[in-house]
């Protein structure tokens, strides 16, 4: 039988959870970009009239860069989890998801340190208000990404395997990547260019 006479394969549709995650990530990313744009614009205005945005030395780059490194490492572990879910490699999947969650908790811990170190009150200045809103929005996004990861882990622990779980892990991973990109924006606009 000639292969050309075989019926064409059934076209596979994009995965529902992944598409939903992609749209949700895009919407969240746009909201975040909007906040960062407002931050930059206000900072620009303050500088045009000769005001200091943050006082010299109030924001340290070291801890912020450490958080970026942690999140970049988590990108690798997230992809590790995705690959493990695809190949149904259970031990590696648990390890990868657990490590990713650990990195997430580490970033939250580092943010706590940054807030203590900065020592700004939210009503100190406009810069302080924007600082807390932008970083607070990121923390909220990170917490949502971690919850998605926990759901994927729980589904895995409950015995869900195969394509469905791989889709869930992949969708969670996509949102995680969007979170890391958002932090890269925060790192550059808030901590590097101050």
């Amino acid at each position: 039988m000639k292969t050309t006479s075989l019926p064409s394969p059934v076209p596979t549709r994009p995965r529902t959870v992944l598409i939903g995650s992609l749209l949700a990530s895009s919407a969240t990313f746009i909201a975040f970009c909007s906040l960062v744009a407002l931050y930059v614009r206000h900072r620009q205005q303050a500088r045009i009239v000769g005001q200091d945005w943050f006082t010299e030395g109030s924001l340290q780059l070291g801890p912020a860069s450490m958080m970026l490194m942690t999140l970049l490492l988590s990108v690798v572990t997230v992809q590790w989890a995705v690959q493990s879910a695809k190949t149904e490699d259970r031990p590696h999947q648990f390890m990868a998801l657990g490590t990713t969650l650990l990195f997430g908790v580490a970033v939250l811990n580092q943010f706590w340190f940054v807030y203590q170190d900065v020592g700004l009150a939210i009503d100190d200045s406009k810069a302080a208000l924007f600082f807390y809103v932008v970083t607070g929005a990121f923390i909220a996004m990170l917490v949502v990404a971690m919850i998605a990861m926990i759901i994927a882990t729980v589904r895995s622990l409950a015995g869900t395997f195969g394509k469905e779980l791989a889709n869930i892990v992949q969708a969670s991973a996509f949102f995680w990547h969007a979170t890391v990109v958002c932090y890269a924006l925060v790192w550059y606009t808030v901590f590097v260019t101050k």
């Binding site: 906040l35 407002l38 939210i122 009503d123 200045s125 406009k126 302080a128 208000l129 924007f130 807390y132 809103v133 607070g136 929005a137």
Partner: peptide
């Protein structure tokens, strides 16, 4: 979110 925080942050 920004306006809400501003209202409660005192700024």
């Amino acid at each position: 979110a920004l306006i809400y925080t501003g209202l409660h942050g005192g700024q």
